[in-house]
Design a protein around this nucleic acid. Sequence first.
DNA 1: TAATTTAGTTACTAATAGTAACTTGATTTA
DNA 2: TAAATCAAGTTACTATTAGTAACTAAATTA
Lengths: 118, 118
Amino acid sequence: MVLKLRKNKAEALPPLCAVGECMALLGGAWTPNVVWYLSAGARRFGELKADMVPVSAKVLSARLKDLEDKGVVTRCVMPTSPPSVEYALTELGAELVPALKAIVSVGQRLKARRAEAA
Amino acid sequence: MVLKLRKNKAEALPPLCAVGECMALLGGAWTPNVVWYLSAGARRFGELKADMVPVSAKVLSARLKDLEDKGVVTRCVMPTSPPSVEYALTELGAELVPALKAIVSVGQRLKARRAEAA
DNA sequence: TAATTTAGTTACTAATAGTAACTTGATTTA
DNA sequence: TAAATCAAGTTACTATTAGTAACTAAATTA
């Protein structure tokens, strides 16, 4: 491909409301789950994948890469064998936790309600 | 189209963690924004669209339809001329508001930080 | 030597979102 | 009386994102 005339990217930034500001970090499939599970401490790729059945390796690795790029998580290759990779929240990531707690708390209420209805 | 043999829909429900339970209602582009703006009171289609620049009419109407189906918002055609349509949160919708407040509060901190960095 | 484990990637399809123009039935304006 | 405007969408088309399933690579254990 020959350079490619920039097209519809970042030409006009949308106005930043507070919802959007936070959802820019928390948006995308499985993102809230990743942050939530990491809020309990560092976790390896395979552990996260198991936590989040039925996420696929593809989406999980894409999400972790996005979050790393945005400064929400760190990625650390551990000198084990076979080598394993640990992900953890950064300080920025930790700031998202209160939002996650609120989401989980609402989720628990909904879930309880659904259980009692059944 | 001739009936269409059901394909990859609801064959195996994913395990319901609390994050997923809440995000099932709050997921999808612009959904948190809709709930947030409606948390301040009923609002017409055009008002919401203006609140949420640069959402498109297509996505906004899809989102409102989804939310209505899920029991999060009500849709009420008003006898004005031209007829207008008012959307409002249901009780279920109102239960999502604490999560939105937490999201907005985190968003405001991020926004403030970004402002001071500039 | 073969199977297992960890952490992914790849190719392909399906679903979701974005863009821009169009619709319908009034009503206000020229 | 005709033209422009407004509300609330819809439509056709493209682009981006997510899901599925199979595959890779290096090291280790059986």
